[in-house]
Every structure is written in structure tokens, then in C-alpha cells.
Design a protein around this nucleic acid. Structure first.
Lengths: 249, 249
DNA sequence: CGCTCGTTTGACTGGTGTCAAGCGCAGTGG
DNA sequence: CCACTGCGCTTGACACCAGTCAAACGAGCG
């Protein structure tokens, strides 16, 4: 049972590429929405103006109620949307993976209602809302894509509510693991059995509405039962059948 | 402490009005989105074709995974979106009040992913998706309104997840009561201290991720502490200060 | 080499779930 | 007109999942 800590404050990360041209997401996922991949008619304008920013791991990314004149998209790294309660408790509402909007709502609203923070080092790009929206109207296909991104955000929240309301700790954890794996699998390829898993136990606790201590106990049980092997920020699924069974309980 | 039951199967209800012309929601709430109230330029077409349907209380309204070629809107009564788990448990994802879309997603998707059921007798109208969407593109203001309806749905889910993940039973109940009151208050008028409350304790339990038994205990405690008075499907708030305090805990 | 961050463990507590029985109102039908 | 029935609400005894508190450990870093 490993314990690991890693450098929380590296202010820039060598693995971050510097241009959208080299971006793995360019033809894929949500970024394609914006560069217009898959449009029947190619965009009649140069690429949208954008600015790019990099933030180190485990740092606040945006404040709750922060106002935006542009809409940010995660290009690299993991982040989380987290709600802070008056009593100091926290609830993670979603994990953000490369290609996700920070929040699709920012296309239509000025303010982000919850805080965001980085989990790994993160790179994001921001697009001017006004120009983005012109695009929306000009290209129905883009509106379509944005809508479906929005729907996906909603579905994840529904799933979260169902988990928190009606499932036990082990089912929640099993589902989190499987859904993250699903999301990480680049489109087309089958989800892999071992993958990068940068979450700390606190993140899991805050996402699943449990305490960090209890997360530890459940992970330990999974480990003892030969379900998973989690170390060095890498997760290996050993018994997928059983994990699926737990998840659907 | 009252016990009440009422007729669950009256197949039509005299209080239901028969035309949209007389609808209280016409100028208000989400229906206004569709008839184009508040547009800078009036709609250049006759009102959208629509059909209307009535369903009695406590009945299934739509099945999970049901496919729609049109998008339904609740005109009268209360309903709920409810997720059914393999083990028989249920989680209510949202309560639908007059003027709400059954789900805003249905504008962009064909299928409703969870079941819906009526709480009171219900009347809803359906609009052809295709025509609705033309309207979306023709009138930016309408798209704006639809988007904000969608955002509101998302925000409620976020609030639900926070409640389920990080709040105790009494805080959840206090928040449910206050938020329903808020939603029922017709726009502009202040929320009233006593209002119609058709939910059974099972509904509350399924919405708040608790058992019906425990809901009963919490309600009883609220009652004993002079916070609320709930009988004959009518809820009176006796100590709003304290209720607010609980809700923000 | 001491500090910090994340993890691990144990003992104990407590909020909710589970099971089960009973009650009361209201609609139904003989 | 009255027993019957069903639904929703109440209540009590008990069990258990998960929270709380507290201490210690291990790995990396300055």
C-alpha cells in the first residue's frame, strides 16, 4: 500500500505543448466544436482569437462567482469544479479532462457559480464569448455540438446525484473508476486496463461525498479483494467483471 | 400529526383549463420562451402547432429511454423525473412545476434518459422539435431563453448533488422546502408563507436520498420545534429564520 | 535531517437504514 | 350504512455504514 507525494508547485510543465496546432484534441472531442471540424462547409474566417494559460497542480484555477468575458476550455491536465459550503465542507461537482469546457454555461452566462481548481498541471485556452456565439448561429453543426456537450455535463450531474443519493461507498468508487477510465479512453480506442490516475484520496472523498478516511478503507478493501491496484498515480484494473458488478449494484 | 390520502386516479381534473389562451404562464416563465413574449420583433408566423394531454395523479408519465419527436412542456400540475436503479431504489432528479420543460435536452436529443411520473394531475403540451428549433435560430432571444432554462436545470442538479453529498437530512429537507417555495412564487410576488405542497413523504425521501421512515422523523422534529406545519397537502412555514439557518448549515 | 503532504490504522460515535407493526382517513361495494 | 381495503403516515427496536478524532508512517524536498 503505497504512499506518494509529488511536487505540487512546478509552475510550468515540460509536457505542455505550446500551440493548438499540435493539440491532440484538435480533431477530436470538444475542441473540434470550435475549430469547426466536421462542418459540411469550412469556416469562412481565420481561427478564433484565443489566449492560453498554464497553471501548476493543486492550485485554485477560478474563484466562485468569477465573471468571464470569454469562455475557457481545458487543453491539458485535470481540474475539478468544487463547491464550498459555509461549514467548510467541499463537494466536487465534476472532474474536467482535456477537451472539456470549464463550464458550457459560460457561453450564455457571465459568471461561473463554483470554484475550479487544478489537480495536475493544467493548460487552458479562452475564446471571446461574443465571437464564439456568432459562430454558433452561423453553423448549426456547431450549435449542435455545443448542445451535446452541455447535455453531457447535465448527464454527469444526474449520475452523480443518483450515486450520492442511492448508492453505497463501494458502488460509488467503482463507478467513479470506471467512468473516469471511459472518459480517458481516446475516442475509438477501447478503454485500457491501466491508466493515469492523478486523484488524491481527498479528491475522491470530495467527489463521492465521503470522508478521506473512509475512501482509504474502501480502496484498501478493493485492493485486498484483488479488484484494483493503485500506486504511483497509476491505476490498474485487475478484476473488471467484479468492478462492473459492484458498479451496477 | 395528520394522515391523509386522496384520490389517486381521477382521470381528469376540473381545475385544468383547456386552452393556452387562458394559461397563466402565457406571459411568464418558460412558456413565454416559445410564444416569443418579449421579442424585439414579433413572431412572423402563427403559433406553433402543439398537442395537449392530461394525466391523473401518481401515474407514470414517460418511460425511461422513451423517444420523442417533439418536446413536451408542463402546463399544469407537478411531476418528477425519477431514476430507477437495478436494485429497486429510486432517485428523484427533479421536480417539474408548471412552465418547466420536461427536459430541455429534448430540444437537441431524441430520448429522455429517465422516467417521469405525475405527482398531481398534470397537463402538458408538446411542440414539434423541428419547428421549435427553426424558431431558435430565427430569434436569438429565444435561444437565449432556452439556454437559460437549460442552465437552470443544471444548477438545480448541482444543488442536489451538493445536498446529497455534503448535507445532513435536516438541512436537505429545509432546503427542499425553501427552494420549492421559491419556485412556486409567481414571478414578481414575494414567496408566501403558506403554500400548496402535494408531495408525499416517499417523494421527499426519493428526492433527498433518504428513507421514507427517516423523512417522517425529520418532519416530526421540524413540527415539534415549531418550524413548519404540514397538513392536508398544505405547508405553512412558522419559523423561517430557523429554517434558513438549517438550510445554510 | 526535519518538514510537509498524502496515506494508513484503530477506537469510538452517531446518523440513517431496516424491519415490523399499527393507525387513520377515505373510497368501495355489499 | 357499515365493514373492508389501500394508501400514506407513525412509531419503536435494532443494525450498520460511514463520520470523527487522533496518532503514526513513508516518501520526497529543501
Amino acid at each position: 500500500m503505497p504512499s506518494r507525494a509529488n511536487s505540487p508547485n512546478s509552475k510550468s510543465d515540460a509536457s505542455l505543448k505550446s500551440g493548438c496546432g499540435g493539440c491532440v484534441l484538435r480533431e477530436l472531442g470538444l475542441c473540434s466544436i470550435l475549430i469547426g471540424a466536421g462542418l459540411e462547409s469550412p469556416l469562412d474566417r481565420p481561427p478564433l482569437p484565443q489566449f492560453e494559460k498554464t497553471v501548476a497542480a493543486r492550485l485554485p484555477l477560478f474563484r466562485a462567482e468569477e465573471r468571464f468575458s470569454n469562455v475557457p476550455i481545458l487543453c491539458e491536465g485535470w481540474a475539478a469544479i468544487v463547491a464550498h459550503l459555509p461549514n467548510g465542507r467541499r463537494q466536487i461537482l465534476s472532474f474536467l479532462l482535456p477537451g472539456d469546457f470549464i463550464s458550457a454555461s459560460l457561453l450564455f452566462e457571465e459568471t461561473l457559480h463554483h470554484a475550479a481548481e487544478t489537480i495536475t498541471p493544467v493548460c487552458y485556452r479562452s475564446f471571446a464569448r461574443a465571437e464564439l456565439r456568432e459562430l454558433l448561429f452561423a453553423h448549426p453543426k456547431i450549435l449542435e455540438n455545443v448542445a451535446s456537450a452541455c447535455i453531457r455535463e447535465k448527464q454527469r450531474l444526474e449520475d452523480l446525484a443518483i450515486d450520492l443519493g442511492r448508492r453505497r461507498a463501494d458502488a460509488r468508487l467503482a463507478r467513479l473508476i470506471l467512468s473516469l477510465r471511459e472518459r480517458m479512453a481516446t475516442r475509438g480506442r477501447a478503454p485500457s486496463r491501466v491508466f493515469n490516475f492523478p486523484l488524491r484520496q481527498v479528491h475522491i472523498a470530495d467527489a463521492l461525498g465521503m470522508t478521506q478516511v473512509h475512501v482509504n478503507r474502501v480502496i484498501k478493501r478493493f485492493h485486498q479483494n484483488g479488484l484494483i491496484d493503485l500506486q504511483a498515480r497509476s491505476l490498474r484494473i485487475l478484476n473488471e467483471k467484479e468492478l462492473q458488478r459492484l458498479a451496477n449494484k
